[in-house]
């Protein structure tokens, strides 16, 4: 038991990323409001950013830049995960933009942004057609 706890304590950034990820997934799955689902998606993506940034961390690391007279032994943070997350943030923003644009159109089409009401309207349509 103590082993597990100390393991978790030394890897606390994983615990946080997994908690954040589960919060995001819960919001996406359990919330009926379309905007809240998008917020959940954003939390989920942020969890991934946190994970990436934390694996690039080095104890006592500095910025990964060269300067005049920089000693060979100075540790530096791994910049690659940061760069990758720059791309992922852009992707996340564009997904949010498309999602919100769709929600505006859904609001115009259905008059609601509650999932349950939309499904009920769709079902009524389907019954009307057959």
């Amino acid at each position: 038991m103590l082993d597990v706890l100390s393991h978790l304590w030394s890897h606390y950034h994983y615990v946080f990323y997994i908690l954040l990820m589960l919060i995001g997934l819960y919001a996406v799955l359990a919330k009926g409001n379309l905007v809240k689902k998008v917020i959940g998606l954003n939390v989920l993506q942020t969890a991934v950013f946190l994970f990436y940034i934390s694996i690039g961390r080095k104890a006592g690391g500095t910025a990964p830049v060269l300067w005049e007279g920089k000693p060979e032994t100075v540790p530096y943070e791994n910049p690659l995960p940061h760069v990758l997350m720059l791309t992922a943030i852009v992707v996340g923003v564009s997904i949010t933009a498309v999602a919100l644009a769709l929600i505006i159109r859904i609001k115009r089409g259905y008059g609601t942004i509650e999932e349950g009401e939309i499904l009920a309207l769709d079902e009524a349509d389907a019954r009307g057609e057959s």
Partner: peptide, 27 residues
Amino acid sequence: RRQALYAGYSYLIVGSIGATFILLGIG
């Protein structure tokens, strides 16, 4: 039709979860 909007939205939500999983796998 308005159903297309909701179909696109559902795919967006599910598809983004899938893509996020792939990103985690890469990580």
